[in-house]
């Protein structure tokens, strides 16, 4: 699959949920080449600060309209600049990158999709693809478990429930749906409904992914988890986006997978979850002016 640079153009920015922005980019070549679960590197601003491109997953891929969409939360310098891009702003895209989701074979049975916060971003396109071509008998056989800190941060019903899929919402503060962790909700619902998922897809914060991975391994459900990392290049050169790989035996030396070229979609079994270190959660107050 060829990677390329494309000069895109901002069409529209909209705050679709609290602190959650949807960016529509005119980028016809990217829209024609990208697949659900892949990502691209976006230069949010000309100049030297911020220096590096930022990786974003494809929230929607609309080849006929020549548009790709990004869903993002303002968490730092890069997304702050991005949020200030007016319609018409040219932005350089580099992609499509990474492996992308694999859709289940036709009539494989129900699938479970787990989203945490902004992790809904790549899953929206996945759900569209599952509905359009893949593997699931009825829309209601797509079971989306969607958690966030609070209800205001979640995408509205017209983007999810209205697709006819089964949506189970949870919030940390109980303001919408189940009050508690989305992974607890997942355990409950799967047990109550005796769901036999053929496939699990997930994207969200690391703590959620860790519990989702454990659940998938326990229940022997094949899983495809979309992981993220800081990265400089996105094309396998900087080797910055390393994740500790699962090992054949405990005595072998640590080695690493790379989010950009081995992922960003990984099976739960391929990662040593307890060895992942991160910069920590995004700051609750944002010191940048």
């Amino acid at each position: 699959m060829q990677k390329f640079l494309e000069e895109g153009r901002v069409l529209e920015q909209q705050e679709v949920a609290r602190q959650t922005h949807r960016l529509r980019l005119e980028a016809p070549r990217m829209a024609g080449a990208a697949r659900a679960g892949q990502f691209f590197m976006l230069q949010v601003r000309e100049g030297m600060d911020p220096l590096l491109r930022r990786p974003f997953s494809f929230h929607r891929i609309l080849p006929e309209e020549g548009i790709v969409e990004v869903l993002y939360r303002v968490v730092g310098k890069g997304t702050w600049w991005l949020s200030r891009c007016a319609p018409g702003t040219p932005l350089s895209l580099l992609g499509p990158l990474g492996n992308g989701f694999e859709l289940p074979p036709i009539a494989a049975g129900p699938v479970v999709v787990v989203a945490g916060g902004i992790g809904i971003a790549p899953l929206q396109e996945l759900i569209q693809q599952l509905l359009a071509k893949g593997g699931v008998g009825r829309p209601a056989d797509i079971h989306l478990f969607y958690g966030a800190r609070t209800g205001a941060e979640q995408l509205p019903e017209n983007l999810l429930e209205d697709l006819g899929i089964s949506v189970y919402r949870s919030t940390d503060d109980g303001s919408l749906g189940y009050g508690g962790f989305v992974t607890d909700l997942l355990r409950r619902v799967v047990q109550e409904k005796n769901l036999q998922p053929s496939q699990l897809y997930a994207c969200g914060p690391l703590a959620m992914q860790y519990h989702v991975a454990r659940w998938a391994l326990e229940h022997k459900v094949p899983s495809q988890l979309s992981l993220e990392s800081l990265m400089a290049c996105g094309i396998g050169a900087c080797l910055g986006c390393a994740l500790p790989a699962a090992q054949a035996d405990a005595s072998s030396q640590d080695h690493y997978l790379h989010v950009c070229k081995d992922g960003p979609i990984f099976g739960a079994e391929s990662i040593q979850w307890h060895k992942i270190q991160t910069h920590g959660a995004p700051p609750t107050i944002f010191l940048y002016s």
Binding site: M48, D49, P50, L51, L52, K77, S229, L230, M231, A232, C238, L239, G240, C241, A242, L243, P244, Q253, D254, H255, Y256, K275, I276, Q277, T278, H279
Partner: peptide, 13 residues
């Protein structure tokens, strides 16, 4: 194998 992550951080310029 290289160092454990995080392996990089952006700084001004």
């Amino acid at each position: 194998p290289g160092n454990p992550p995080p392996r990089l951080v952006e700084t001004p310029a």
